[in-house]
Amino acid sequence: MLDNIIETQDLTKTFGAGVAVQSLSMQVPRGTIFGFVGPSGCGKTTTVRLLTGFYKPTSGTLSVLGKPPTDFLKSDREKIGYLIQQFVLYPDLTVWENLNFAASLYGVGLFRRGRLNKLLDFVELRGDKYKLARDLSGGMKRRLSLAATLVHNPELLFLDEPTAGIDPLLRRKFWDYFKGLQAEGHTLFITTQYVGEAAFCDLVGVMYDGRLLMIETPDGLRRKAYGGDVIGIRTNEELRFEHRQQLESLPIVRGKVKIVSDQEIEVIVDDASTAVATLLEWSQAQKLTVAMMEQKSPSFDDVFIRLIETEVAHD
């Protein structure tokens, strides 16, 4: 089922004269991992708060689980899990007690020991269940918060910067968890300022200065940033100015050729899968020996910066 679990139209939230979110329109299909990427202060958390019903929109419409969040009933709220940016659970309670508290908060039945243990296994905290929360490391606290978010098995998860401030290894583990949750049928709306994490999402919304710039698949983002696929070519011979000119005149090539070194260049094409054959033919015609020709996958940091630069240039 690929209906939309979240839909917004021209969603705007202002605080006094400041605009936190401006005319945000998007659809999040059920069962996807939707990444919400953008720099700090760009309006990601405000958007999550609008979607969870914490904030009332200034204008525009939104529908989460089929209704505006301000009309949520208890039964609707039971379908939502919300991981707040900072650790808000109780430091003087143990891991197990915090989890029990969260379960009771959502009215989870009393025969829940098995589920809680399973969750602790999932976030690898079973061995620490009797530790006080204040004695946990930052990463463990984050995992406990995630377990508390999942305690009532919510249909839709809002995870606000779940990987902020934790080491890359643990971040990777978190994304493994998220993939596992998606496989179980959950929809995940994840905000992050680590743009590289966009690679793990099905869809990525790029947020900048309160505006949603685009929603794309990770590959789509790259294409949008560079205007097509990037192909790297390295030859045994030196690549001269004429070669570059000829390449830029080819109909499959978009824009300027990027020089990496004397023998290596990068070209942007419409479709890498069909362009490779044409480029090989061109090389042979130029009597160039191709040492390497492959589709490049620019880092999302580069993609993001390029997108933002384009946006700023537009403004």
Binding site: R49, T52, G53, F54, K74, S75, R77, E78, I80, Y82, I84, Q86, V88, L89, Y90, L105, Y106, G107
Partner: peptide
Amino acid sequence: RSGIMELFRVSPIT
């Protein structure tokens, strides 16, 4: 002050 009130507001507890 801890911020957990935000969680309560989103959860079904009244």
